[in-house]
Design a protein around this nucleic acid. Structure first.
Lengths: 352, 352
DNA sequence: GAATCACTTCAAAGCGCTTTGGATGCCGGA
DNA sequence: TCCGGCATCCAAAGCGCTTTGAAGTGATTC
């Protein structure tokens, strides 16, 4: 590290200078600005006026060192080949969380790290106070990050769950099993029997739970699951497209699809149309809809029949829960399970 | 601010303790750890071993205060109703930039702020050193942020350009005009005359330039532009869908569409299909393709004929340029103009 | 033997804030 | 008159690091 210490923000005043100019101590000025009670109203006004006049702004770095709090929340994103970060769902989550951070004076610190460095990144970020708390994204069923963070003793909250982790932790999740079970049952009630599942990667916890829901619904209707009708991969448009084509090529093609994401549902729709079939009449499609801003499921009326739960709202709520945990460290770990809502669109219909 | 100073990371050692344990001064230990030359190899090893043994990790907050550098880059995202942040293009940009940050030891600080507070956010973030540099996203033609940041005297780089801003600034942009001009000309060469433009919001600089390119191509082919064939809005799927339907309802409907984004192109395709038309045969569609990870334009062969330029690569490059600017503050402001590449897919064909 | 030099190491002074633990002055009650 | 209490304000001690400027070693040179 061969950098010079630069005269930081040269034109600007620091607390000492400001207090000298006011003939007050730094203590008093600091207290006046931070709203402490042991300052007379008159001085407080005088200080505020001077701060404004001289365009004083406390140095955040100094503040952070002195208070021991960084006022920022870490999001560590694994940067795999199949890039989790870029998941468009993630962007909406971040937007929701960011809103809440802004309201509470926090900011968001994003680190993208290569998979093999992820645990180290958590340590680096958390251990010596670059952030006050961490949000864990996309937990796998057996996710090492949770025990790791628990041991680091830093507040964190998981968006999703990790079924095989026994360490207690705070989380917020959608009831994925119930959601897909409800959706699948809806298709069964429409008479479908060969229902395909175009799932996300099943090392992800949510994908596993969705499969469980799918299987539970089939089981409840005495429909034996067909392994040939179940796919699992990263939820992209081409994946949905390819999976649909492959399955529709089978001798006993599915009459309905359950897609884990609206993105892969778009691919499924494309495949259906390429075959000259009509979605909703010849083939039904139901998907999980995270209410992604740029890919809304229709404006007023839905395009896809879907299990709906806003990921943006989840982001907001996760941020609130985490900030609460940071400011009240002694409270119990909280968890929240949200239910997705079934919305009916023209993409599903009775089994032909 | 009524928080206690908490004993920060209690179990961990700080520099003083570590140096006492080693019978060395803090100076020497600090230098040994930071790779300064004036430390003997032997001591360096001894220090490294002890640091590892006691799991020492420097306090980032203290480091930041002492060095005057925060080792983070700010991205401030306006949080409008029509949420820029959530722009899926943005997520890919961030992913690219994040890669580079990670490699250089920087991290990314994201703040989402309401529109009316945006300038204040820049000030707050930059003025007293929460970040070492800033990336400006989605500049408008007449963007106040640029002059503002220039005055704050903090390194920043604009992704895009702001045509009406005279202050010099560093930027990286795609040659939007040439890209869309090329694309439109391609359609003209296929015999199309009624070509619709489904553009982004034209207060955005890139959208204006794209329209210029569109008009230039029409002009070059002596095709008078038809205002009824030009739309401008935030580039969502439903917008593309609605715009396409409206224009196809006209008495003289377009035979081809130029879309500013693959997202709106998806909507256009949906509309075409809903009308029982075939894309590429009855109606041609060409779009700008930012190579969004989750919405790739086909796998090996493109689905849409497109002008292609990776926004993720742009993110990477912006990060590099900015870091370079931070580490070499005296160099001249740099700019880069990238060309998009025309790729041909089945979505375009001769005018029927 | 003194002077020079390269190599190591160190004490102490910041960085700019917050917070502790008093001081000071003023008032009313005993 | 004295004392306690209240309202204000302050000096100084951190927070945990980096960096300056100087000093202590030997070894080498003249």
């Amino acid at each position: 590290m061969l950098f010079e210490v630069k005269n930081d923000t040269p034109g600007l005043m620091n607390l000492r200078e400001l207090s000298e100019r006011l003939n007050l101590s730094q203590t008093t000025v600091s207290r006046a600005l931070n709203g402490y009670p042991e300052v007379s109203e008159q001085t407080r006004k005088r200080v505020a006026a001077a701060a404004k006049e001289f365009n004083y702004r406390p140095n955040i770095r100094a503040q952070r060192l002195a208070t021991g709090r960084s006022m920022s929340i870490g999001h560590i994103i694994p940067l795999s080949k199949q890039n989790e970060m870029v998941n468009i769902v993630f962007a909406d989550f971040i937007a929701g969380a960011g809103e809440v951070y802004a309201r509470h004076g926090y900011n968001m610190s994003l680190s993208l790290v290569r998979d093999e460095e992820e645990l180290n990144a958590y340590r680096g970020v958390a251990e010596k106070g670059a952030v006050d708390g961490i949000i864990v994204h996309s937990p796998a069923r057996h996710d090492p990050r949770i025990a790791f963070l628990a041991e680091l003793d830093i507040p964190f909250l998981v968006h999703g769950r990790a079924s095989e982790v026994t360490t207690p932790y705070a989380w917020l999740d959608v009831n994925n099993k119930r959601a897909i079970e409800t959706g699948t049952r809806h298709l069964l009630e429409l008479g479908h029997r060969r229902i395909a599942l175009v799932n996300g990667e099943e090392r992800m916890d949510f994908a596993q739970r969705r499969r469980e829901g799918y299987l539970a619904a089939l089981c409840g209707a005495d429909v034996p699951p067909d392994p040939g009708l179940m796919r699992s991969n990263e939820m992209s448009e081409p994946y949905g497209h390819a999976a649909a084509h492959e399955m529709l090529d089978r001798s006993a093609p599915p009459t309905a699809f359950v897609a884990s994401s609206i993105v892969s549902a778009l691919g499924i729709r494309r495949a259906i149309q390429e075959r000259g079939l009509v979605m909703g009449r010849d083939i039904s499609v139901l998907c999980f809809d995270d209410e992604i801003s740029y890919l809304p499921n229709g404006q007023t009326t839905p395009v896809f029949t879907a299990m709906r739960s806003s990921v943006r709202a989840a982001g907001r709520r996760c941020a609130e829960l985490l900030i609460d945990q940071i400011t009240h460290p002694d409270q119990e770990l909280r968890t929240e399970l949200w239910d997705a809502e079934l919305v009916i669109g023209p993409s599903t219909g009775p089994c032909p």
